[in-house]
Computed example of a mutant assay.
Amino acid sequence: MRVLYGVQATGNGHISRARAMGKYLQAEGIAVDFLFSGRPAEQLFDMQQFGDFQVKTGLTFVTEQGQINYLKTAARAKPLELWRDVCQLDCSAYDLVLTDFEPITAWAARRQKKRSVAFGHQYAFLHQVPQIHDTLLSRSIFKWFAPAQQQIGLHWHHFNQPILPPIVDLEPGINTADANKVLVYLPFEDQRQVIQCLQPLQQYQFYLYGPGLSKNQLGHIQCSGPCVDEFKRDLHQSGAVLSNAGFELVSEALQLQKRILVKALQGQMEQESNALALTQLQLGQSTEHLTTAVIADWLAGSNSFQRVAYANVAQALAKWIRAGACPTELQQLDLWKDQSL
């Protein structure tokens, strides 16, 4: 069986999901060709797992200081190049096209009437899940940005909807957490401002990852640029996670039972809805403004929150795909049975 797998590379969450899926698809004997879009090739890192992958421009949002800049987003969009890539992508050699909110593979499969399956957090918003600033535009984006014949939404709770738990890229191991160690990943914020917020809190050890940072020790703040292995190690060892409200890192933190504080990317409906769901489910805390006082209150506050234990969704989906990706069989997997929420 040969599969074309499109990955939205704007954020690292989609790529992290692809790492998990790729391992289990390979274990099932499925040949996978990857296509990434939404980020320049030179900004991708630790991509050896994906072999000889393709990179396309696709579509992405421009962010500045924690907010989406819609004018720059529109100015940098290349719709003609996007459509050319859709028309030139040949899906004839594949038995199935998978897309994680990646538009080129999704629309190429649609044009060529190739069987396609989409999975990702964005598809959960096609159902009745917690949403904020829900508009006709947002609903249209979730429906038509990267459509597929079968669309599988992922979320932290089922909300009595036909969706699945998160796909997390975590290796089995001992979760040895240090309560005073805090992983910080706020890629959409000004990193200098983040450091200023953390500097007074010298009783904690902060491990800050972000774009433009080089490996550097600033007293109790360890700065690092984007990487995979060290980030995963620090995630396992930290007692708490401070991040934007992207889905994948929060999912991994939940699975590892970390304390969580998120600041949603302003103007990004998905992240703002994630912050809402996280607090409604009592899985973590959220803030609209990042200050030293907010971080200090969170770290000093109660450690009580709901705990979850998600099933191995990546493995289940890989086996389901190898068996033919039958929609009725997917409904019978019952992947929520192990969740403690």
Rank of each mutant, 00 (worst) to 15 (best):
261 L>I: 02
160 N>S: 14
241 V>L: 09
117 V>W: 14
154 L>M: 13
304 S>F: 06
341 L>F: 07
222 Q>A: 13
254 L>Q: 05
236 H>C: 09
182 V>A: 08
46 D>Y: 07
135 T>G: 01
103 P>G: 02
12 N>C: 14
334 D>W: 05
180 N>R: 13
152 I>M: 10
321 I>V: 15
138 S>E: 06
131 Q>L: 11
188 F>L: 11
196 Q>F: 02
119 F>L: 15
139 R>Q: 14
283 L>M: 02
23 K>F: 01
279 T>V: 08
122 Q>P: 15
218 L>C: 12
8 Q>P: 06
43 Q>I: 00
196 Q>T: 00
117 V>T: 14
61 F>P: 03
112 Q>V: 12
49 Q>A: 14
6 G>D: 11
92 S>F: 01
39 R>L: 15
317 L>Q: 08
327 P>E: 05
4 L>R: 07
33 D>I: 01
115 R>E: 15
197 C>F: 03
272 E>V: 05
39 R>V: 04
140 S>K: 03
12 N>T: 13
32 V>H: 06
185 Y>Q: 07
80 L>F: 06
14 H>T: 04
245 A>H: 02
14 H>A: 07
113 K>P: 05
125 F>P: 04
291 T>Q: 07
37 S>A: 11
177 A>S: 09
137 L>P: 00
249 L>F: 04
201 L>H: 02
89 L>C: 02
237 Q>G: 03
109 A>M: 09
289 H>M: 03
150 Q>F: 11
128 Q>C: 07
283 L>F: 04
157 H>Y: 13
149 Q>W: 09
180 N>K: 14
142 F>H: 04
322 R>N: 11
54 Q>V: 06
110 R>T: 05
197 C>D: 00
161 Q>L: 07
305 F>S: 10
99 T>L: 13
180 N>Q: 12
179 A>F: 05
171 E>L: 03
310 Y>L: 09
129 V>D: 08
231 F>H: 06
197 C>L: 01
112 Q>A: 15
317 L>M: 12
146 A>W: 01
120 G>S: 14
12 N>F: 14
242 L>N: 03
232 K>L: 13
128 Q>S: 13
114 K>I: 12
206 F>S: 00
83 W>C: 03
322 R>M: 12
204 Y>N: 00
299 L>F: 06
265 L>I: 13
87 C>K: 14
234 D>M: 06
120 G>V: 14
331 Q>K: 12
51 G>M: 08
59 L>Y: 11
334 D>S: 12
83 W>H: 04
322 R>Q: 15
248 E>Q: 15
212 G>M: 07
275 A>I: 02
331 Q>A: 15
288 E>F: 03
310 Y>I: 11
120 G>D: 15
296 A>T: 00
113 K>R: 15
59 L>E: 11
219 G>E: 09
277 A>S: 10
134 D>L: 10
170 L>H: 03
328 T>Y: 10
66 G>K: 01
